[in-house]
């Protein structure tokens, strides 16, 4: 690229070299019946799943149907606030909008009495001590901050119970 010949009006001014091009997606989410029950439950400090009448598996968050059997999952199950880490990721890269100090741990937590893990943060433990099989419990925001969002659970933390044998969770991770 040869040097540009500029008109007099642009001589000596600082050139623009980059331009902002944000992609902005602004939308409303319609949760549907099953997710509405789950979300309103969170505002009441409850974790609600649904059980499949055919295979008996408990799904959380519930989607209203069993993906294996294709039947409605109408039976609601209130789940305990404790579970087991099935797998996890130590996040070492910061990104825009993240709001967490790195490194931090994002984990799949298999809540007790459920059959599918939920993704959430694990805190109140050094990141290099997090492990598969670790027993954890939900830490909620204060009661006046409860809202119909998964952010009503701040994170999970170790609850001090002995680890669960990972092989007993096979098929659920």
């Amino acid at each position: 690229m040869s040097d540009l010949l500029l008109p007099p009006s642009l001589e000596g001014v600082e050139m623009v070299r980059s331009v902002r091009t944000p992609a902005h997606l602004d939308y409303s989410y319609t949760p549907g019946r099953a997710m509405s029950r789950f979300l309103t439950g969170l505002a009441e400090k409850k974790i609600r799943g649904q059980r499949c009448p055919s295979c008996g598996k408990v799904y959380v968050p519930p989607r209203g149907a069993c993906p294996t059997d294709g039947v409605p999952t109408e039976e609601e199950v209130e789940l305990p606030h404790t579970g087991t880490i099935t797998t996890f990721c130590i996040v070492n890269v910061s990104f825009y909008g993240q709001g967490m100090e790195i490194p931090y741990v994002s984990a799949l937590v298999l809540l007790d009495d459920s059959d599918i893990p939920l993704m959430h943060l694990v805190q109140e433990v050094p990141y290099d001590q997090v492990r598969t099989g670790m027993r954890v419990e939900a830490v909620w925001v204060s009661d006046d901050e409860l809202k119909p969002t998964l952010e009503s659970i701040k994170w999970f933390r170790p609850n001090g119970e002995p680890d669960r044998d990972a092989s007993t969770m096979r098929g659920n991770a």
Binding site: V19, P22, A23, H24, D26, G97
Partner: peptide, 14 residues
């Protein structure tokens, strides 16, 4: 809900 990706791109000389 709002998702925003704060891209910027280089313009080139022209």
């Amino acid at each position: 809900m709002v998702i925003e990706y704060p891209f910027s791109r280089t313009t080139g000389p022209v």
